[in-house]
Design a protein around this nucleic acid. Structure first.
Lengths: 250, 250
DNA sequence: ATAAATTTGTTCGTATGTATA
DNA sequence: CTATACATACGAACAAATTTA
């Protein structure tokens, strides 16, 4: 039971319902602050507060000099779990295949491992690891950034010492390690969601009100961690899909 | 190359670095707006802008009359994919087991199915379905809300016509359907992240700057969808974990 | 190509309301 | 009851980005 709603909330409600009814479609320009002042007989401050409210909800975003727009949420499909690093899922339509056409830029170096990563790899802090930083773009848009670490005690001196990008730009950890006789038995992923850091928001050109997926992934060969990665994905461009086949007998 | 940073951004940077350095810990009270005005020689507006910036990043939240606090991010572990509806994962520590102690409140009714849900169930809009709405609480805190639909053309007249909550409050779809001779073969989940709607923010008592996981799950028996659900989880309380076992032979 | 107009971004100051200690 | 804290709201001015004339 709201006693009396603040003016900015009332204006936000009206705009939100217009968006939900489709009066303003994704990408459309919303009324300017001046128009809101006149239509609702409110001050600049209140108009800005209404805009800020809908920005926090991720419904709209504003651009200086241009105006306020309804968020677009073009989604790419991405498979989680066993699908990571194993290329595209099977049986995709042509349109879906386009969604898997990434461009990847990579930077690779050898460094001393930081504490948190060392723990995930089960090695001592300061040990040498290969580090690779990837930037994934789709249709000119940066949609994902990731970092990857592998202990040089495992890959050092082998042909896979330097992490490589596969055909589709997707570094296939399992195949790479298999090539030196190490068979990955498990992949674990912890998936979180949060708002981007200022740096991430800048690199991913994320609009206000858009969260990110943050995935920590580790490949295991038996009890030994052979690779771990941090993956940050735009929350408005990805759907993580899990498909699990249930064994027939209980 | 930032030419000159706005005053509010500079203040936000200082506060953010204090939080990251641990000078303010989760739950701690930050300086009041009056103190910020004095410390940084800024106006009310600028102090509020700095606070708003860090709220958008999900680092802090404010409470009228009390002050501004560093966000706490107590996490519950939750398994995705095949784990849904199959109880707790095995081999949990005592602490982790506590994380699975949910209380569930359920409302159940029979309704005519809406368009979107009908499509996912592969039935006609307006067909009769059972609908169940669950509210999941953990230590007195609402952490998840979900809705579940099953076609009455499948379950109507059977002992499982009314969706039931299992031992741990987790309705076990696979076991329930098995009891009437229907064997679930696949579970599909599409996982999205977004900011909560005002209604969700209210029901989940979510602080500013905290996104939610939004999961659409469907259970299939062969080609037939037998159940579908919408699940909304607090993004600051859940980690979705995937563990995938890789077959030995390629 | 330039200038003017439009729009959002930043910042100031002030006043009042509401929740909490 | 009082003081403190954040929330809401008004008005004004200038800056920065963009569009329009």
């Amino acid at each position: 039971m709201a006693i009396t709603q603040p003016a900015y909330a009332r204006v936000a409600d009206v705009l939100r319902s217009r968006i939900n009814k489709g009066e303003y479609e994704p990408g459309d320009l919303l009324p300017s602050q001046r128009e809101l002042r006149e239509e609702f007989d409110i001050s600049t401050t209140t108009a800005k507060a209404a805009i800020a409210q809908l920005e926090k909800e991720g419904l709209i975003y504003s651009q200086q000099g241009k105006g306020v727009f309804v968020q677009t949420t073009r989604e790419l499909l991405r498979y989680t779990a066993g699908r990571y690093g194993q290329g595209r899922p099977p049986n995709l339509t042509e349109e879906e295949q386009g969604n898997y056409a990434y461009d990847v830029e990579a930077e690779r170096r050898q460094v001393e491992v930081a504490a948190g990563i060392a723990e995930r790899l089960g090695i001592e802090e300061g040990e040498r690891v290969s580090e690779a930083v990837y930037t994934w773009t789709h249709e000119g848009e940066t949609v994902m950034i990731s970092s990857q670490w592998e202990p040089l005690s495992i890959t050092g001196g082998t042909p896979i010492e330097t992490p490589a990008s596969g055909d589709r730009g997707q570094p296939d950890v399992i195949t790479r390690f298999a090539s030196i006789g190490i068979h990955v038995t498990d992949v674990r992923e912890d998936i979180r969601t949060r708002m981007p850091t200022p740096d991430e928001a800048h690199r991913l050109k994320i609009n206000a009100g858009v969260p990110v997926f943050h995935i920590q992934r580790t490949h295991f060969a038996g009890q030994t961690a052979v690779e771990t990665a941090e993956i940050v994905m735009r929350g408005d461009r990805f759907v993580l899909r899990n498909e699990q086949v249930i064994p027939i007998a209980q």
